[in-house]
Design a protein around this nucleic acid. Structure first.
Lengths: 146, 146
DNA sequence: TATATTTGCATCGTGAACGATATAATTAAC
DNA sequence: GTTAATTATATCGTTCACGATGCAAATATA
């Protein structure tokens, strides 16, 4: 048995598992508002800057438009946002929050802190998170440039 | 705009993105052998210890059996493994690699190194990976205990 | 031994991810 | 001004992740 193949030596398995479990931690906080975790990410993007074309949202999240489009359509069906054809460029669909979408920011105000405190532990804390962020940012940059 | 909601401050978005991108790095290496990344994880588990019940595989990967079962059935259809009813406990399905499944270990021998070198960069290297592993392990432990 | 509970696995439905492909609008080249 | 190439979305098919539920075998309890 090669050491390289040991599950405990895999970075990807750790990232995959950590990502799944952390998403699971968000779900109970979001589901009451009819949201999934990727939909919450879209809200984060739109709260920062409203009325963006689909493409900009996808690029910000490093996702493809064929992933984002059905997600946005579900959010539109929920009345969280609207999709309107662009005026300058008729190919673009401009995504804009509704009042309901904007109001969700206040309703979800406690989410970051709740998840944050669920995550904090001996090895994840104020001292370790900056290095973790830096390493993950480097990894993401490395992987998205190819 | 609350600082807590900034996408760039989210641990989960980093993990989610890093996990997706790293999985994408595996796909071209696996797809030629008819494998997906989660199927590769199953192989890692079975190469370490063959002939395990579904439940043990699921627990090792921190997945639910309703995720693993269809995945195993696809792998069985590909001739990579067999699923046979347990003798001691008839509720258990024992998963065993076929010759094809065992041979895949040699065929995929270069995968860990190939992905490893694709990942290595200024911020992900011999010096930073141990701390990254430790932090992620702590996070996974924290999140799986609730 | 009969009944109740637990356990292992499977099925179903929904929402993502993503490659491949399609369509329509825009832009570039000729 | 046509035609060609590019760009912005959308559609389709396959695989996962996971909650809810079902079922049968095993175990605990009466």
């Amino acid at each position: 048995m090669k050491e390289q193949f040991r599950l405990d030596n895999q970075l990807c398995f750790r990232l995959y598992t950590a990502s799944r479990l952390l998403t699971q931690a968000y779900n109970p906080l979001l589901s009451g508002h009819g949201l999934t975790y990727p939909q919450y990410l879209v809200l984060l993007v739109l709260w920062e800057k409203d009325s963006q074309p689909v493409n900009d949202i996808a690029k910000r999240l490093l996702l493809e438009t064929n992933t984002v489009t059905p997600l946005l359509k579900r959010m539109e069906a929920e009345g969280i946002l609207t999709r309107t054809q662009g005026k300058k460029d008729a190919r673009q669909m401009i995504v804009t929050l509704t009042k309901k979408g904007r109001d969700l920011q206040d309703e979800l105000a406690c989410v970051p802190e709740t998840v944050g405190s669920a995550v904090m532990c001996k090895s994840v804390n104020r001292d370790t998170v900056p290095a973790l962020f830096e390493t993950l940012d480097g990894l993401i940059k490395q992987l998205s440039q190819r």
